[in-house]
Design a protein around this nucleic acid. Structure first.
Lengths: 243, 243
DNA sequence: CGCCTACTTGACTTACTTCAAAAACAGTGG
DNA sequence: CCACTGTTTTTGAAGTAAGTCAAGTAGGCG
């Protein structure tokens, strides 16, 4: 397992500039690491967390639980992401977090982080920035689920995760681990399971990508992007020209 | 016109605790106020703003412009909101802002704000918090546009705006100014104009509310909330029990 | 091997979109 | 004041995408 501090630093450096003292400040944070099984919740709606989570390995997701018991997935997070940085300033969780596949998550105490932000504002600013990119991803999800055709929105979803994993250095060439079921895909994109399947087959037939057994393979990135209307600008990465 | 500093302070106090020195720090910020006509853009996709906007009066909205020229509205903002606080840390705008109805907007220089955050971290934290509530609103919009029936999502949209306006002290009893067209409502909720109209008529027929001529009247709040599945917890206001 | 879960497929039904046109309304100029 | 224009809202009818329901297949695991 890679060191949690290093994972966080790598991820923050993706978009922010940090001084030597900021890095050592981050490394001074205490933390614990826990492993979670597929679908295991680690923060629930209504919780008042005092720790902030960092994805160390695997994938986690945020979701809303509706009155009728149905689920709406809101976002997916990979190694380096801080999926609940909002807990730093918002007392009560309005959504839950669970592992997608097996995942390792590091937890940092809010108290220590806030103290660090006061001492080294640049660290706070870089994590603030991270939460703002998060918000940009949510905005894109609104547009995706509201304004695109079903196959289009599925393509866009795959594009985003593929791109983010690529930036994080997690892809194996054209392959990307994505341990998500079709049912979950439906609960993410707002479509019925039968539709998910048919849209997926349409994407397969397009020859641009394949997704099966929790693995995404992108064979024609440019065409897939086109088909999805994907423009990575909203992810606000420094290396725009990556792929 | 009310003083922009006072409007900002009132709004931040809605969820954060600020010391006397923080308040005077906020009041030391220079700003300009501009008035915009209905549908007038004041920040465009791709811009690199150096000022942060505060809604002083009226309503503004954020939206994505898609490749095919269609629009997806992302959020609506009323007096006291900072609709582009993200510009503080994210260089390039991934969405645009426009006035809905006539609106007055105050602009504060990023440079001054960042300097203030370093001197008085609590101010930065309160605005950070504001951006996190923003993100919570986006998350709810994902769920709304993906998991609810068309009339349900329209009801939820009205509930949220009514509630937020009420908290901000902008409602006139059961009435609330909402200068938005049915077309825009469709571009917000991801539904065709014809559907918007029919869903609206369904809501009218339910006897819980009416919306016409840019004015929302809520006659049965409890029933409307019920019908919408609206739970204001995600807005993270201090006064939960308000309505 | 049998059970469970995840995926796939088909048939049916209904919601919603699209298209088209009418009605209501606001603004403009004679 | 009223005709003219453009915009927004409303209504109707037709077509279609996608949801629901139901059954069948495939893969993983004790």
């Amino acid at each position: 397992m890679k060191n949690a501090h290093q994972i966080l630093i790598r991820s923050l450096k993706e978009h922010s500039v940090l001084a030597e003292e900021d890095l050592s400040g981050i490394c001074s944070l205490t933390h614990t690491v826990r492993e979670f099984q597929p679908n295991e919740d680690f923060i629930r709606q209504g919780d008042h967390p005092e720790l902030s989570a960092l994805v160390v390995s695997g994938m986690v997701a945020r979701y809303h639980l509706l009155d009728d018991g149905s689920r709406q997935y809101l976002s997916f997070h990979i190694a380096g992401d801080l999926p609940d940085a909002q807990g730093l300033f918002i007392d009560e969780m309005d959504h839950a977090l669970c592992a997608i596949g097996r995942a390792e998550v590091a937890f940092f105490p809010h108290r220590e982080m806030l103290r660090l932000f006061k001492r080294r504002p640049a660290i706070g600013f870089s994590i603030w920035r991270e939460t703002l990119v998060d918000a940009a991803i949510f905005r894109e999800a609104i547009t995706n689920n509201s304004a695109r055709t079903k196959p289009g929105r599925m393509a866009h979803f795959f594009c985003e995760l593929f791109y983010r994993a690529r930036v994080a250095g997690l892809n194996d060439g054209a392959k990307c681990i994505l341990p998500i079921s079709l049912t979950q895909l439906g609960e993410t994109l707002g479509m019925a399971i039968a539709s998910v399947n048919r849209s997926l087959q349409e994407l397969r037939a397009s020859g641009t990508m394949d997704f099966r057994d929790g693995e995404l393979v992108v064979t024609k990135w440019r065409e897939l992007k086109q088909l999805a209307g994907f423009n990575p600008q909203y992810l606000h990465m420094k290396k725009q020209s990556l792929i």
